[in-house]
Design a protein around this nucleic acid. Sequence first.
DNA 1: ACGCAATAGTTGCACTTGCAAACATTTTGG
DNA 2: CCAAAATGTTTGCAAGTGCAACTATTGCGT
Lengths: 168, 168
Amino acid sequence: MNSEIAGLTAVLGPEVTKVLDPAVARAWLALLTAYGRVTRALSSELMDASGMSLADFDVLAQLARSEGHALRMSELADAVLISKSGLTRRIDRLAINGWVTRRRCTEDGRVHWATLTPLGLRTFKSVAPAHLAAVAERFGSALPAGELERFTRDLLKVAAKNAEPSQS
Amino acid sequence: MNSEIAGLTAVLGPEVTKVLDPAVARAWLALLTAYGRVTRALSSELMDASGMSLADFDVLAQLARSEGHALRMSELADAVLISKSGLTRRIDRLAINGWVTRRRCTEDGRVHWATLTPLGLRTFKSVAPAHLAAVAERFGSALPAGELERFTRDLLKVAAKNAEPSQS
DNA sequence: ACGCAATAGTTGCACTTGCAAACATTTTGG
DNA sequence: CCAAAATGTTTGCAAGTGCAACTATTGCGT
């Protein structure tokens, strides 16, 4: 989604600028555009190179960096920002590829652990460098190094302001 | 998608930092998190308040700010960053609500104009202020005013680096 | 004029998603 | 102990999405 907001004073009247500062509107539009274009490009590059979606990559990355290469379903769902039902089916698909397995937890039978298989780990390792290089190229190389920290801090402030977890 | 990248040197080895600077990785993660949380929140607020999705809002906004409150299907698809087929069906749904109509162009029969109806315009006008206020609150208010311009500029650089249009 | 490439939009299809309800298991309170 | 609430995950279902194939219309080259 793009959420074009600029140029609406003509239809909404000049009062809008009181509710949404035009400079903020421009920033928001810039964020949406940057996000949309970069993820679109990364997504198709990753799909071409490995047949996995960005969301699949996220799941593998989360598991790869976790203790025992395993996470509970809900932890994982929170980490990759999709709904729990969405994760159930994403794990189904990854399991079909042989990249993850699902194991019921012995201590608490409600809990299921999604676990990276050795094949999943190898696949992730083989795919990650090119994907990370693409992130560096499409995102990192556009940003002045000197402003990176500040830029990140601002984004984290936005993220923090909108914290609060989990879905059905 | 979240694309968690931080904390992968343990599994990928320290060479990764040569392909993707950790500071860039943090920035990227921050962008994904901020985007995900804000859009999730805005989307559900907008849906609750008006029954329209963020994508619907985008379409109405684009039409509202256009000459004659109308755009060609493909122009509109480009503007809101969805595929042409996606737009066809989005317009179908908006038409069912009575918010837009579709008219074949008299000069070029291939072209169809999506046009905002008076009802669509009224609806947009009634919904927009609260949505824009939510953008101001969730996004704008998190950002230090003094850094806004720089922040926007950086995002536009990223967007510019990844320019190039349109889908099937 | 005529056929053929180009352009604009729509449809068939397969896939992904989220919500709400269902299911399974554990925890809690009497 | 046991019913009821709480917790974790999966399923039924009803969207929404993109791609490739299709239809409709126009414009070009001869």
